[in-house]
């Protein structure tokens, strides 16, 4: 889209763009380029010499069972976070769309977790579930559950899924509520007159009408689970126990910062970039198609 009326100046547009372009080049293109460049390099243990090794880092990565396991963990984790977050938010939004009394109060009380930092969300839930002092662990132990996420991988996974979902529910809720409110009342009224009950109306009219929102939220939630949950994981399990919650971003960070494996970590960053680009392309293609029912 173009404006019909434009201003003319030989230098002004460049001057206006300069700050953003400068920051983008210095903090975006330069490091991203370096990530790709390092991913073809092998550095010795002291960081003194580097050597061009082509695709060796990538080959080593895909031969590494830990890396492949991390892929699986990430897929499992993001499907759980997206699935739980979307279904709970849809339930709450449908209910909130129905009520008349207290609608604003409900909305306010449901959206605040959005403002909580992922790392803080992790700390709150880790405290509730802390093996020795947590309130919830106490109840679980009373009921005969052997609860200790510090030692048991599946419990650690459950903890990070709960904390990540909790933080994302308010975001999904707001989008579903906006989606629900944009559905024309006349459609639902017509169905009601034809004798369709509330659950029938939901599954045959409301849910299909919401499918663009649902799809959009699915992509956003998967991106969230891939990257933004770094804080949750670092503040709680740190990828443990024994790598049970080590998602790809966490592994790239760990290998690069803690294990000082620059080449391997950069190769992982390069793969992550490809994944994000793929997700973005998928998102844009579907957003362009708009409606899929």
């Amino acid at each position: 889209m173009e404006k019909r009326v434009v201003f003319r100046s030989a230098w002004l547009p460049y001057a206006l763009l300069a700050p953003q372009i400068a920051i983008t080049v210095i903090f975006f293109f330069w490091p991203a380029g370096q990530a790709v460049w390092y991913s073809f390099q092998l550095q010795d243990a002291f960081g003194l010499k580097t050597q061009f090794v082509g695709l060796e880092n990538f080959r080593a990565l895909f031969a590494d069972s830990h890396y492949l396991a991390s892929f699986k963990i990430t897929a499992f984790f993001s499907v759980l976070v997206a699935g739980c977050g979307i279904s709970i938010a849809l339930l709450l939004a449908t209910m909130a769309d129905r009520v008349v009394k207290g609608a604003l109060a409900y909305k306010t009380l449901l959206i605040w977790p959005y403002a909580v930092a992922p790392a803080v969300a992790g700390v709150l839930w880790a405290f509730l579930f802390a093996p020795s002092i947590g309130v919830v662990s106490y109840v679980l132990r009373k009921n005969g559950v052997d609860w200790n996420w510090v030692l048991q991988g599946d419990q650690a996974m459950l903890l990070v899924v709960i904390a990540s979902t909790w933080k994302q529910i308010s975001y999904n809720f707001l989008f579903f509520l906006a989606g629900l409110q944009s559905i024309p009342r006349s459609l639902i009224e017509a169905a009601a007159i034809d004798g369709a009950g509330p659950s029938r109306r939901f599954w045959t009219i409301v849910f299909p009408m919401l499918s663009p929102t649902t799809f959009f939220l699915m992509v956003v939630n998967i991106v969230y689970a891939f990257f933004d949950t770094f804080g949750v994981i670092d503040a709680t399990t740190q990828g443990g126990p024994a790598g049970a919650t080590q998602i790809l971003v966490y592994k790239a960070y760990y290998d690069g910062v803690k294990a000082a494996d620059l080449g391997g970590s950069s190769a992982q960053s390069a793969i992550l970039m490809l994944i994000v680009i793929a997700l973005t392309v998928i998102q844009f293609r579907f957003v362009e198609r708009k409606v899929q029912y």
Partner: peptide, 24 residues
């Protein structure tokens, strides 16, 4: 320039963290 800015939408800081740290 438009596409140069547009492409930054795609890459969160987490994926290019180590090289960005080096630059800084």
């Amino acid at each position: 320039f438009f596409w140069m800015i547009f492409i930054t939408l795609m890459l969160p800081v987490e994926v290019r963290i180590i090289p960005t740290f080096k630059v800084v």
